[in-house]
Design a protein around this nucleic acid. Structure first.
Lengths: 120, 120
DNA sequence: GGATGAACAATCTGTTCATGG
DNA sequence: CCATGAACAGATTGTTCATCC
């Protein structure tokens, strides 16, 4: 058993939730996470977001489509990659989230214990 | 800023507290931590304990003395390494613990937030 | 600046090996 | 088995570079 939850798993958890909510593409999700954790002084590195996305694709949870960001190609040629659940991806994701939940609880327990054990 | 607290820091925290309480040597502290976290399925690896101890010595927090485990050399020749605070080690340790406390709080906050954000 | 991807280097961690009583 | 230490291999991570619009 590992010590703490890995950053990778933590990010995957958020990515899955964001895809559930149809927030689509990498860069946007990166900015979203940065904003959420700004007050914690944590800024997920860009590379980790993409690695996590690639892994989820590789694991058969997501598949990718490409589209232009703007609806009118004349206006914006920026191509973005959108992620969607595969047929059994939703089920896989559900299971994954369940496992992560267990791990989150375990980590919170250990950290709380450490505070109790080491500070008055 | 790193994502989560490092295992190294977590272990150092416990080592400092244990030395404060005059629980002396590496192997014993290892067993102690294993026992404490057994229910969490976490078993700190032996190498990490020693690395953490070496670092604390290197950082000038601890110094080492050697002694035989049994008081009677005829009974037990097992040599053990005892750790003590250096002159300014106590102060350094206090500061270190303070920093770790901040980090523990931060981590608990992030993990709790993750549960709130990703589960119902 | 927005968006994606890959390469690279550093760090951290887990397992194994080595030594001795 | 108790006790310490080091070596080694692998995984994770952070920074940087590359590319395109």
């Amino acid at each position: 058993m590992a010590f703490m939850i890995a950053q990778r798993a933590f990010i995957k958890l958020y990515l899955i939730t964001m895809v559930e909510e149809h927030r689509g593409y990498g860069y946007e999700m990166l900015e979203n996470m940065k904003e959420r954790f700004k007050s914690f002084g944590y800024s997920p590195p860009q590379s980790e977001i993409y690695r996590a996305l690639h892994e989820l694709v590789h694991e058969g949870v997501f598949y990718r489509t490409k589209q232009l960001k703007g609806n009118d190609p004349k206006v914006d040629f920026q191509e973005i990659v959108i992620y969607h659940f595969t047929d059994d991806g939703r089920e896989k994701a559900k299971l994954y989230k369940k496992q992560v939940k267990t791990d989150l609880d375990r980590c919170i327990g250990m950290l709380t214990k450490a505070e109790a054990d080491n500070y008055n």
